[in-house]
Write a protein that binds this DNA or RNA. Structure first.
Lengths: 140, 140
DNA sequence: CTAAAAGTTAAACTCAGCTTTAAGTCAAGC
DNA sequence: GCTTGACTTAAAGCTGAGTTTAACTTTTAG
């Protein structure tokens, strides 16, 4: 299979496939007069990369557990550890998004003429100060 | 107030304040022998920018409704429209995150030795193909 | 008075995940 | 055999929201 076909089947650009190879996620395939020729199971591998990427893993993380054969730890436990950590991130993201949603709903439903009025009316000024305080604390 | 104090109170770096000014979100303040001197209400403005930024608005969007006095539309309705649109994005983000959470939970709880086995066992292969198909469709 | 801390600028750098460009080589159809 | 489309490379560009750097000036503390 040539790179264009693989890319089409995976829903990517060919440049993305080459990028994965360069980043060490995809083994360099055989070449036929300079051009890459992929075995058919390469598609599964690429789809797996896309899948993990869609799940929020960085390419670095994906590389870690796809090429982890040289490490001592078995692949399964390491992968589960990664997944568990990502699960925490996802949960935090959900919690944050829910808070944002509440705030946005309040803001879209209020009858103020300006955002500044809204913020005052909804008592968000304290929120603002709190956020700033936390940011200051986080920096020190 | 000098820029450092404003930055500290807002929980930002001074460079961020200068960046906001450069991007047109913050009016250039008075200067005293070349240095910026801010009135006390500048803090409120900066906090407002941070607040909106935390809510997921881009600086471009924030600029739009903070400096929108030259436009015809009143600030309130325009802001609400933006907020409503952002609300949709937030909802999509939540939905996506919830799906990811389910997948990650399944993956962390299964007993496969490798991710590839997991994907097979959980019937995610179809998912992968579906994702690829959607990606192909989205490109055409 | 002097040294350190905080201010100034423009321009370059950061992060991730690619895409685009330029300049060339190879393959496929007529 | 010729054109067109697909492939090759390295290097540069893109996005957003700033940060960092370098070289310099101003303010503040001792």
């Amino acid at each position: 299979m040539k790179i264009g076909q693989l890319a089409t089947l995976a829903g990517l650009n060919a440049s993305a496939i080459r990028y994965y190879e360069k980043m060490g996620l995809l083994a360099p395939p055989q070449r036929s007069s300079g051009q890459r020729r992929y075995p058919s199971d390469a598609l599964h591998r690429v789809l797996l990369i896309r899948f993990a990427s869609d799940m929020g893993f960085t390419l670095g993380e994906i590389k870690l557990f796809l090429n982890g054969l040289r490490d001592n730890a078995p692949v399964g436990p390491r992968w589960k550890k990664l997944a568990a950590r990502k699960l925490i991130e996802v949960d935090q993201n959900i919690a944050r998004s829910l808070r944002l949603k509440t705030l946005l709903q309040n803001l879209t439903q209020c009858h103020c003429a300006s955002l500044q009025q809204c913020v005052g009316a909804l008592g968000l000024s304290e929120n603002l100060r709190f956020v700033a305080k936390r940011a200051r604390a986080a920096k020190s």
